[in-house]
Design a protein around this nucleic acid. Structure first.
Lengths: 234, 234
DNA sequence: ACCTGAACACCGTTCAAGT
DNA sequence: ACCTGAACACCGTTCAAGT
């Protein structure tokens, strides 16, 4: 029985508390691995327990429900999000922020539906804070900033969701024309678009980002309110 | 046995084909009612069969799987979408089109997750066709039109999803401050935004719509390509 | 062709019991 | 405090059998 200093003791205690060294962190980490490999459907309490060499019900000592587990995993993924620093070049900052959001989502494809279903995701507020700082540099008020934040977030997450599900899951006009579910007589432009060539997800994302930021810039020009000053409400 | 004309006979036959008058249409219609009242989780093959006074497996004569049923329901909902006519006032047309999309989604809240999960949704192409026509009036090329379509669609559906789940399911800074999951020291702007008052979903949607359309207008000014002409590719 | 009942292979979670 | 096994109340779907 070698002596251990208090800090080592505490760390060991929280790392492996019960008989089997099961911990909330271990449960969440293994859950995340399972999610990454097999997807959300395959992530059942039973299979996760089996992977941890433990009975199903042991999990409930560290996680209050499957929903709780899924939210912890979503939280864990969003914590990987790197938030680029915000500078006075607010347009560049916004691009960097939402490209980073897209990257972390693309890197964790199976986590997307889990993130979208999460009830509570405190880690996302770091993103919100950075975006609001950028909007302030752009001369937008706080309320407009929040609206712009949801605009950019919904756009980004929606875009990534489509990208992950593969070549647009029934929204691809080319597919639809081939299947005959589309009539070129009724939908000439859709059919024309279908023969437009390969879809470029990166280009589509950058187009959306440009369009939104251009729109925000136009808005901030229309209602100038001390852009680039550091004034705060009293 | 009264005589029936052929058209009546055929209609009766397709309306109630088997012993119990069960039909794909009846299954889908009742499924949609159940979805509307109880939500997607509650829509099981067993409960739906019970409501139709039929054994569970009878459903499988008209629907190949639960997924098939859900997609048929999603299709049914999207067919309710009214597509406003597209005029040369492309900005006004776009507003009308995506307001209509938002309306039909808000009117069928429980259908949203089903629509988002659908693999194939031919009814949505009517929306795409109208939007592409409006973008053409705005002077956008077809590829840009498709990119703009996904931008507006993802924004609208994302916005509606948030709205339906109620006061932003863990994305509400006010909630987060109250729960103490947010530290005002680290996230000053988020905390400031939290005390900004009630959230107005309509205003947020209109802000997003304005921003995107302004951005598209700026884009079409930058790359003029015979705006408002009816030229088609040869 | 359409419908049925039983069965299979799963779920999340409760509960009483063990250490 | 942490873990277990059995049980409960569900799932979607397959299959063999009926009409």
């Amino acid at each position: 029985m070698a002596a251990k200093n208090p800090s080592m003791r505490r760390r060991a205690a929280q790392a492996r508390s019960g008989r089997h060294g099961l911990t909330r962190d271990r449960v969440v980490a293994e859950g995340r691995r399972l999610l990454r490999k097999e997807g959300m459907e395959a992530l059942s309490m039973r299979t996760l327990a089996q992977r941890l060499g433990v009975s199903t019900m042991a999990l409930y000592n560290h996680v209050s429900s499957r929903q709780d587990l899924l939210e912890a995993i979503a939280q864990d993924v969003v914590e990987d999000l790197y938030i680029p620093p915000v500078t006075s070049d607010w347009q560049h900052s916004l691009r960097a922020i939402f490209r980073a959001l897209r990257e972390v989502c693309l890197a964790n494809p199976h986590a997307m539906p889990v993130i979208e279903r999460a009830e509570v995701l405190p880690a996302i507020f770091r993103l919100m804070e950075a975006a609001l700082a950028a909007f302030r540099h752009g001369g937008l008020g706080l309320r407009e900033g929040m609206q712009a934040y949801f605009l950019l977030t919904n756009f980004t997450l929606g875009q990534v969701s489509y990208e992950i599900r593969g070549p647009f899951r029934g929204l691809d006009p080319g597919e639809a024309v081939r299947r005959g579910t589309i009539l070129s007589r009724d939908l000439p432009l859709v059919v024309e678009a279908a023969s437009t060539g390969e879809w470029d997800f990166n280009a589509a994302f950058e187009f959306g980002l440009d369009t939104i930021i251009d729109g925000l810039a136009a808005h901030s020009r229309k209602t100038p309110r001390a852009p680039r000053s550091k004034t705060r409400a009293p």
